[in-house]
Design a binder for these strands. Sequence first.
DNA 1: CTGAAAGCGCTTACAG
DNA 2: CTGAAAGCGCTTACAG
Lengths: 339, 339
Amino acid sequence: MKKIYLKDIAKSLNLSKTTVSLVLNEKGNENKISVTTQKRIKNYAKKHNYVPNHLARGLSRGKSDTIGLIIPNISDIFYAQIAGHIEKKATNYGYTVVFSSSHENAKNEQKLIRSMVNRQVDGLIIASTQQNLKNIRQLRQNKFPLVLIDRHYPEDSSNYIIVNNFISVKNATNYLLGLGRRHIAFITVKLELEAIRQRLLGYHQAIKEVYGDVKQELIVELNPKNYDREMKAAIEKLLNQSNKVDAMIFSTHYLTASGLRELKNLKINIPEEVALVSFDELSAFDLVDPPITSIMQPVEDMGNLAVEILLDEISGLNIKKHKKVVLETELIIRKSCGA
Amino acid sequence: MKKIYLKDIAKSLNLSKTTVSLVLNEKGNENKISVTTQKRIKNYAKKHNYVPNHLARGLSRGKSDTIGLIIPNISDIFYAQIAGHIEKKATNYGYTVVFSSSHENAKNEQKLIRSMVNRQVDGLIIASTQQNLKNIRQLRQNKFPLVLIDRHYPEDSSNYIIVNNFISVKNATNYLLGLGRRHIAFITVKLELEAIRQRLLGYHQAIKEVYGDVKQELIVELNPKNYDREMKAAIEKLLNQSNKVDAMIFSTHYLTASGLRELKNLKINIPEEVALVSFDELSAFDLVDPPITSIMQPVEDMGNLAVEILLDEISGLNIKKHKKVVLETELIIRKSCGA
DNA sequence: CTGAAAGCGCTTACAG
DNA sequence: CTGAAAGCGCTTACAG
């Protein structure tokens, strides 16, 4: 079974490459190629297992039918889910997805963007480190189809799909206040992300509206590379304050998992002593002891919309609607807050 | 910032495309191109942000520097992790990864293989549905670089990297027997996979060695599309047998999660009434109530080895060592079995 | 209805 | 040290 090319088919059938190419691209009818010829070509192609070379096709048409996905980490269940939905949707439209993880490193991300561009992806979906404004701007100025997801650059006007981080956390905080929790800690990571900032601001806002001011000692910012080792000291400090903390909000699922591990080590009763809310969740958070109240993001919508908007851009349909999308989250109430 | 091509650089610098191409591919020295010329070219390229067209390059060299990854589902944490390790390793070697999910559908998988091949991936890593022997054979006969991962075809001699499913489950079953559990159920999915069969066989073997025979009513095979809805009835039936089940082994992480949910609904005490072992796990299984004893797969090794073997194949190093790799798992003991 | 030919943007053997 | 030219495998405007 040797590899077979357009010219082989043409020669064997005594036709030109043009005719064969046209027919195989379903342009036989519009070019009025006789049905018998079409049949002959298709049969021959199938019989000899003809597989077109996508590189050649792409080069010739200036289009690769590929979209690039750059995310912090494909092993993170949140991004894996988004990737899954993006892939499904993209496949439906005949696109293939190339993905790469930036590992929260701006230099990596920059390299990946370059690499994707030179691989001629038709468009890019990026959950950015938010440290690459220059590159993102450059893409946009070059009219490169692009949609940011999960994280955006407030100072840039690229398309994006994010979640209402501020309101989500504000509501969650109010929920805890409503349950009578008074000393609510907010545990987050030191990442220069607008999303993370908004989560913190949501907490701030809710607390301020009740108490007038926010106690700095209730806010813990951990090093993203090292949060797991810093968690223990952080939790202990929160618990040993003059006003012992009676609730904790974790700003990401991995912080929740890490924090919960520590709380269990310390034999803290949840929710009696400390109530817990997680922003985003791991797959088994409903099975955890106790089940964790979580702010759920609409991952499916995020993925689907990203692809839709991107494909609109690619096909030049610069539809104005929904280019900046802010989706709502849902607070799933479970037992980790009592009630 | 207009797009710039090799010929533009050549023209601007009064050189030929050859020279420019050679230099940009780090072949300047071996072609004795003067250092000054090299400098000029590199500077110009950087200044004007030259990005080579990978399609053209690939077409010309007959190599795309891309590897394809076909898995059942990128949203499954197990495959997401493998994908993560594959990506990391591949990136190190200058390769990009294209992935697609088959969703356990053989036809999909076949299409994906075709699609990847025509996209000129240099090699393929597949966690196959194991329903595509013909296609896999065809790839191998065409000397297409390929490594199967997680699931292999026993009747085919392609490279693979799998886990010792048989021993893993046999050991886990013996572990339960050793703890005094007598009525051990095995809950699995109806998937035509050698891996799944081996897990069942491991259970069989362990039970047989003690009891002489296996009771069919202790084995439950659920429909992969519908396991979540079938779980309730299955669990209830196991618990209502004349000999009430006192242990359950789940053959995949998602079955464990689903089963545990039911057991909790039914207020079954774990491990007092029923001990639990999971093949593979979800990220939070150590936080679950109770923490779940799990058979852990060496995902990192699996991913890394897959890439290494594949790249060896691609570069024509048909190194004979480790083309069929069977890795060991580890039984992580947690509280779900008591003890 | 069908074909000859140019072109996509690279690489590379060959020549000087 | 450097360049002209062929070739990778397609697509497509143009001509008949």
